[in-house]
């Protein structure tokens, strides 16, 4: 059986949905961040797959590299915020952190 582009797109669809479910149901801030990483990875699989199945061009590879860099930046800032939140409010439950709701 030939592995075509649809197979990769289906795998990344499953990964995207799983990541969305993680973001929607988890209340631990770090777990939500893990869900975001799943979402970013599924998008990145799509970029690399399209880049592979279309002749020439490296745009998809470069975009997935940019996604990885942005994920690193996002993880650093988000985890700094989580640590700061934990030190100030002593919780990492996002439903308990309602100070900004006024």
């Amino acid at each position: 059986m030939n592995i075509g582009i649809e197979h990769y797109l289906i795998v990344s669809s499953f990964l995207f949905v799983i990541g969305m479910y993680t973001v929607a149901t988890r209340r631990h801030a770090v777990a939500i961040l893990m869900g975001v990483e799943l979402l970013l990875n599924s998008a990145s699989i799509n970029f690399v797959a399209f880049s592979h199945f279309v002749e020439g061009g490296i745009s998809g590879y470069v975009f997935s590299l940019f996604i990885i860099v942005l994920a690193a930046a996002e993880a650093a800032v988000a985890l700094a915020i989580v640590l700061s939140l934990f030190r100030n409010t002593n919780t990492v439950d996002v439903t308990e952190s309602v100070t900004l709701q006024g």
Partner: peptide, 28 residues
């Protein structure tokens, strides 16, 4: 290198640095 060697290690560190190690008692 970047995801598993960097981001994942930072995530696991931040899990260990915050309270409630392990169980996420407050599920939805």
């Amino acid at each position: 290198i970047v995801y598993i060697g960097g981001i994942l290690v930072v995530i696991l560190f931040s899990v260990l640095l915050t309270k409630r190690i392990g169980v996420d008692k407050t599920t939805s």
